[in-house]
């Protein structure tokens, strides 16, 4: 394993110290392990927090700021945060109007957030939980833990964050967050595995001429393994999975993200985006807004995830609203 580390045990603490040093707009509590806005909000608004394992940067800490999250609680690498941390983030985000928890649908995340929500409820903080489960590679059935939360998390945090910023109430913010999730689908393909600092070895061995299809964001193997094909063909597989799960009409307008999993050059992400946009153009579907880059990563994994959200006018307006965070910044 070759990584920039001091010790595998201190990777999170050391990275948080760096995050704090790099972004004066953020306030990083190294003891409680939470990231909050350094300045405000100073008025009553619905708080929005999220959290999950580390290793997905800029998710979630990079999305703390005006127009998006109020606080984030990063767990150890690929490990959900603990209830104490989530409770601390909930308290920090509470301005008296309640707090929305945005939780990616993984067994551990759901359990820890649920425990924290109960503790917050005991303190009189109203909490609404929104689960993100957009990954169509996993079928939601009695044979799985349900769909995974992946790329749509960025859409949910941006749009719900903007709605909270404009003064929506607790149920209103939770409602639009759920609507964005319900309208979003993702699919991911990996060219290489990734190595967690604690294990020191890649999560799986993949021959040079093979790819993992239907991967998540935790270095686990995907649904199946296939021979490496051209980008057009790989994108066709992914888009087929996405569009067969949620068929789109030519009248639909979409927000589309091509997201790098950590080790994919931007050159290739744009190449993939070109193929995605060709598939959608072919079906007459409008791509209204786009995002290309590394937003929900899986350490150094080479791979790409595609997320398509069928957006209504309100979602698009909220998408366009000003946002000022380390990883997303426009209109301000």
């Amino acid at each position: 394993m070759k990584k920039f580390l001091n010790s595998p045990d201190t990777v999170l603490a050391d990275a948080l110290a760096g995050l704090a040093a790099a972004h004066p707009d953020l306030s990083v509590d190294l003891d409680q392990r939470i990231i909050t806005r350094a300045h405000g909000p100073h008025r009553a608004k619905v708080g929005l927090i999220s959290g999950g394992g580390s290793g997905h940067e800029p998710l979630h800490g990079g999305f703390v700021g005006a127009g998006m999250l109020d606080a984030a609680c990063p767990g150890e690498v690929f490990t959900s945060p603990v209830p104490d941390q989530i409770l601390a983030a909930t308290r920090a985000a509470d301005r008296g109007a309640g707090v929305v928890h945005i939780v990616k649908n993984y067994t551990g995340d759901v359990m820890n957030f649920q425990m924290a929500a109960e503790l917050a409820g005991d303190e009189g903080i109203a909490v609404r939980t929104v689960l993100v489960d957009d990954d169509v590679a996993v079928q939601d059935s009695t044979y799985t833990a349900g769909r995974r939360g992946t790329g749509a998390t960025v859409f949910v945090e941006k749009i719900a964050g903007a709605h909270a910023e404009e003064g929506a109430d607790l149920d209103g913010v939770a409602e639009i967050a759920r609507r964005v999730n319900a309208a979003s689908r993702s699919f991911a393909v990996a060219l290489t595995a990734c190595t967690t600092p604690a294990s020191g070895r890649p999560g799986f061995d993949l021959p040079d001429d093979e790819i993992e299809v239907g991967v998540g964001i935790h270095g686990e193997p995907g649904r199946r393994r296939e021979k490496l094909a051209g980008a057009k063909e790989i994108v066709a597989t992914a888009m087929d999975a996405i569009l067969s799960d949620q068929p789109l009409d030519p009248a639909d307008r979409t927000i589309v993200m091509v997201n790098g999993l950590g080790g994919t050059p931007l050159l290739e992400l744009y190449l993939v985006f070109g193929e995605v946009s060709a598939v959608l153009a072919d079906k007459g579907i409008t791509v209204a807004r786009t995002l290309v880059g590394n937003y929900v990563t899986s350490l150094e994994m080479a791979g790409v995830s595609i997320t398509v959200c069928r957006a209504d006018e309100q979602m698009l307006a909220l998408w366009d609203a000003p946002v000022r965070t380390p990883a997303l910044r426009w209109g301000c």
């Binding site: 150890e76 945060p81 603990v82 209830p83 993984y106 551990g108 359990m111």
Partner: peptide, 9 residues
């Protein structure tokens, strides 16, 4: 308070 993941709860 210290494990995280599903194993902690």
């Amino acid at each position: 308070s210290s494990v995280g993941g599903a194993a902690g709860p």
